[in-house]
Amino acid sequence: MTTLRFPDDATLMAYVDGELDEAGVAEVDRAMAADAEVARRVRVLLDTTAALRAAFNAPLNEPVPERLLAPLGAQRGRPWRAVSAARYAAMAAALGALVVAGGAYYASWGYELPYTVVARGQGNWLNSVANYHQLYARTATRDERLLVDIGADDMAYLESWFGKRLKRDVRLPNLETQGFQIQGGRLTFVESLPAAQFFYKAVNADDVVSLTIAQTRRADVDWTSTKRNGLHMIYWRRNGYAYVFATAADKHVLHNVASSFEGDQEKI
């Protein structure tokens, strides 16, 4: 006899793939907080997805061969950027959780993973980030300059200023090749810890993408896609810092922006 369980696997897959509406996301969040087994099933899906991306992302960092560019009338404009050992180390960390794990595969979601599930209250810090993002995005249409503490006129100063407050080096990604220009950053607090929220605006549209770098006491977590307060969000946490990309625009915009930084702290 088959036993029905909630949330079912299809719902959890949809949660991980960013297919649920906000009510659905909240329902799964509640289920994860209440039931460690649900949280574990979600982690399996998240870890699998993170591992897949890490395993196949190499072409994003490789030069495109001339034989593909030439027919399109393009030349190689981006120099070869060797993939660093640190990037591979980050990939190893992501993959290690999945591949090196102990335990037996005994059912669809029976793959054991060596992590501690931190599900309760997971949404609160993300909601803070989402609220700050929306505050900026709403007001930006009136006068965006009012809302950034430090403008992007002097990037070195911008990075240095926030670096001091976050107690780390800050190297902001250049998203111009993806159609977004940095506007500046604001200092805020998430869970009583300093956080910097940087805003990028689409060159040819009103879309806004924010990148939040926040100190955090929460456990490390791999690249995760979710939806909060109408925003698509991709976040990960590593070594005491949380990174969140957010936008109200199409989630693919966000995915493309974030995927090139996945697992690579050297870039930020």
């Binding site: 591992a51 897949l52 890490a54 395993a55 196949f56 050992a85 591979y88 180390a89 990939m91 190893a92 993959l95 290690g96 999945l98 591949v99 090196v100």
Partner: peptide, 14 residues
């Protein structure tokens, strides 16, 4: 050898 572990894990997924 330095990247052996990473190579194996990436290879495992691929």
């Amino acid at each position: 050898e330095r990247h052996m572990e990473t190579r194996l894990t990436v290879e495992a997924v691929r």
